[in-house]
């Protein structure tokens, strides 16, 4: 059973008073996330990651499409009893202490009484905020707010947790601690949905990653699959290529398209490119040019994310 499933989700934000300025934040997005995984949605700022999570939590309404969380339609409020959420740039009421935040929002999630109190103790320890429990949150730093936000997201012992840029404003040590917390949660069988614009933040923990850009889902796979660099080459030729040779050529590369305009081959490394050229030469195909093909959208996007890795 997938913990999360959506079909053809689209979202158009209408521009304020003047009807212009419509934003297509999501386009026909279909996705399923299996239970017990750490799943990351990766994409540059403005890609639609936050919009996607907000739709799943019914904070924003989809323009079309439907979605299920824990096998229930997202429109039912009681789905959220077993859902945790750390919003991006969240703000807790400043007059509450850290502990009061957890009690208040915990009881809104339907957890009450002594069970809630002992759970709060362990959560504060988990995120390293025990010493700050009685301090008003208006005195917290950004990193502390994130830690408290993470505890808040876990206060109802959720089956699925949505974390929107959870390491924003957190120092490197804190980031490592958060990653450890996420791994432990996964080991407890919880599903974790992570939004991030930094590949470095997700590659260490994610079981699967989806790449979103301009509201479109470009690719879903393991980190390994998404980051292996494959290159495409364009090979110009003269003459004709018989069917048998086409089949043989296809076997040597990841992907090949042969037309009268030329050959476009996707290869994993230079060796297989050379192997392809050798094969063509052996069959007396006259090669007129070999050039690197421009990256596909996905590949350029991956390199875009890679460049953002902070050192």
């Amino acid at each position: 059973m997938p913990a999360l499933q959506c079909e053809h989700l689209s979202k158009v934000y209408r521009g304020g008073f003047r009807k212009k300025g419509e934003v297509q934040a999501l386009q026909d997005l279909s996705l399923a996330v299996e239970t017990g995984q750490i799943f990351s949605l990766l994409g540059p700022n403005g890609a639609g990651k936050t919009t996607f999570v907000k739709i799943l939590l019914s904070i924003t309404h989809p323009t079309s499409g439907r979605a299920f969380v824990l096998d229930r339609p997202i429109t039912e409020p009681r789905v959220r009893r077993k859902v945790g959420y750390l919003p991006e740039n969240h703000r807790f009421p400043g007059y509450l202490t850290g502990q009061q935040v957890l009690t208040s929002f915990g009881s809104l999630s339907g957890v009450r009484g002594p069970a809630l109190r002992s759970h709060i103790d362990s959560l504060l320890t988990l995120v390293g905020m025990q010493e700050w429990r009685d301090v008003k949150v208006r005195k917290y730093s950004k990193g502390m707010m994130q830690r408290l936000g993470l505890a808040q997201a876990l206060v109802n012992d959720p089956a699925i947790v949505f974390l929107d840029e959870p390491t924003d404003g957190v120092d490197p040590v804190g980031r490592k601690e958060i990653r450890d917390v996420l791994r432990n949660l996964r080991n407890e069988g919880k599903t974790i949905f992570l939004n991030s614009h930094l590949l470095s933040e997700v590659e260490l923990v994610s079981d699967r990653v989806a790449i979103l850009d301009k509201g479109k889902l470009l690719k879903v796979g393991t980190v390994q699959e998404l980051t292996t660099t494959e290159e495409s080459y364009h090979i110009g030729y003269e003459g004709s290529i018989p069917e048998a040779l086409r089949t043989e050529a296809a076997a040597r590369v990841l992907d090949i398209v042969i037309s009268s305009e030329g050959i476009v081959a996707r290869v994993s490394d230079a060796a297989s490119l050379n192997a392809l050229i050798d094969l063509l030469r052996k069959h007396k195909v006259l090669i007129t040019s070999v050039g690197q093909q421009r990256n596909t959208l996905e590949e350029s996007f991956i390199s875009l994310i890679k460049r953002e890795i902070p050192e």
Binding site: K54, L57, S58, I59, P77, R78, V79, R80, R81, V83, Y85, P87, N89, H90, R91, F92, P93, F105, L108, S109, G110, Q152
Partner: peptide, 16 residues
């Protein structure tokens, strides 16, 4: 105050 950015998300994500 409840509908403020960053706070409203917390309220709306509850089973209410």
């Amino acid at each position: 105050d409840m509908l403020e950015r960053g706070t409203v998300d917390l309220y709306l994500s509850k089973p209410i």
